[in-house]
Amino acid sequence: MNNRIIELFKKKDKEVLNIYFTAGFPAIEDTTRILKALEKSGADMVELGIPYSDPLADGPTIQESGAQALDNGMTIKKLFEQLEGIREEVSLPIMFMGYINPIMQYGIENFCKKAGELGIDGLILPDLPFHEYNTMYKKVFEENNISNIFLVTPQTSEERLKVIDESSEGFIYVVSTNSTTGNADKKIDDNTAYFERIQNANLSNPTLIGFNIKDNETFTNASKYSNGAIIGSAFIKAIENSTDLEGDIDKFVKSVKG
């Protein structure tokens, strides 16, 4: 089986919509329900968040969804159980997004092996250092056909951008501003020079812009400078009090795609 992220970008290179949500939220059994609804509603990719007690890169919305998921009893073991057989029903590329500590406790090798068996295509671990990944974990990611997705930011130097591009397979996650997730004070329009720099850098990987993308306007705008965008906090807000999960997901995805 080829990696679904790489396959997707072969077929589609514009306005790729990647939706983030937290596993086990709003209710513990919603994980697969949301995956299926996202596929049905026309999202292109999914970033499935593994809840953690101390998510440093996340703003309040995703923090609170994670805290609620943990209260609901979410664990990595539970998530793997929920995803058993998911590839019979969902064909979207799926990435895990999480923090290194819970995965270290599970065991990084075992985690990658299990994720590979379940048909997970990528892993985003914002606090896994580049050096540690390259020297210790690259092989196990590759053996299990899992793309490691790196982040770049407005502060990332040209030189480092090149190194990250060389080590990436799948896409590069372009963080829109110097920000935690879902920060309403930060406007992505302020950073067009940075987006243009990335766009003109002749990267070998596709790019998706994430952080503070929330609606059709910001999605369309970000997509001008990249292959698409990632939405997290705004999606969490759209489903947190939902009484019609499938209906609200469909409405949200359609409104973003326009």
Binding site: Y52, D54, L70, T75, I76, I100, N101, P102, M104, Q105
Partner: peptide, 21 residues
């Protein structure tokens, strides 16, 4: 504690089996 990562360094850390602090 057991080995784990908190506040950006690997050290000993009080955590659950699932790696929650």
């Amino acid at each position: 504690g057991t080995p784990g990562v908190l506040h950006a360094s690997r050290s000993l850390l009080m955590q659950t089996e699932d790696g929650q602090v």
